[in-house]
Simulated assay, not measured.
Amino acid sequence: MSTDTTGAPTQGLPPALAEIVEDFHAVSEPERLQLLLDFSRGLPALPPRYAEHPELLEPVPECQSPIFLLTEVDDDADRTVRLFFSAPAEAPTTRGFAGILAEGLDGLPAETVLDVPGDVCSRLGLDRAVSPLRLRGMTGMLGRIQRQVREATAA
């Protein structure tokens, strides 16, 4: 269902991200917040090479909570993208958004990551449960990821 052309919320999304959007739409609005918290708990820890050098990560000032991210683009044929996030446990919404992006985009080809529509965060159906300011934070994360991928693939 990830690339149907009926105007569904998953249209144009890579399969893993489309599945996440489907999961959010499969539950009631109050349960969506719980699902967001689940993604918060599932955010992978930074590997030591970044945990010991947090200055290598880029801040995302659109987020209300301090979050930092970094992308790596492999030299393989697909230019596989790897995502790394640092977000405090006290910021479950921000961590949840980072967890969604990590699960939905990590390991994908650079071209696929660059093609992700900028409105993906609104497709989760959290508009009434999460403030617009917080939703803008996820959009800011995606924008930085895509910019870093563009810069890495242009080099």
Rank of each mutant, 00 (worst) to 15 (best):
G104S: 05
V149I: 05
D75N: 12
G118N: 08
E52M: 05
R150Q: 14
E72T: 12
L142H: 02
R32L: 03
L114F: 08
G7N: 07
A152P: 06
P132V: 06
L101A: 02
L35A: 03
P88Q: 15
P66E: 15
I20N: 03
A152S: 15
A155S: 14
A152T: 06
A154T: 15
E22M: 10
L69D: 02
T153V: 15
L13D: 09
L142M: 12
D76P: 06
S65I: 02
P30R: 05
A8V: 00
L83K: 03
V27I: 13
D74R: 15
D78H: 15
H53R: 12
G118S: 09
L105R: 00
A8H: 10
D78E: 15
V149S: 08
A155E: 15
A77W: 05
L57A: 07
V130I: 15
D4Q: 09
T80P: 06
P132F: 03
A98S: 13
G12I: 06
D23L: 11
I145M: 10
G42V: 00
E19Y: 04
L37M: 14
L105C: 00
P9F: 07
Q146N: 08
L135V: 11
D106G: 08
V73H: 02
S40P: 01
L37Y: 12
D76Q: 10
E29S: 13
V149Q: 07
E62D: 14
R128S: 12
I20V: 14
H25P: 00
L124F: 12
F84R: 02
P109Y: 08
L36A: 05
E19W: 09
P47K: 03
T93D: 04
E31L: 06
L37N: 11
L108W: 05
T3K: 13
Y50I: 03
P44I: 03
E55P: 01
E52H: 12
E55H: 11
L57M: 10
T153F: 03
P44F: 05
S86H: 14
R128H: 08
C121Q: 12
P47W: 02
E22S: 13
T139D: 14
V116E: 04
A16F: 01
P66W: 10
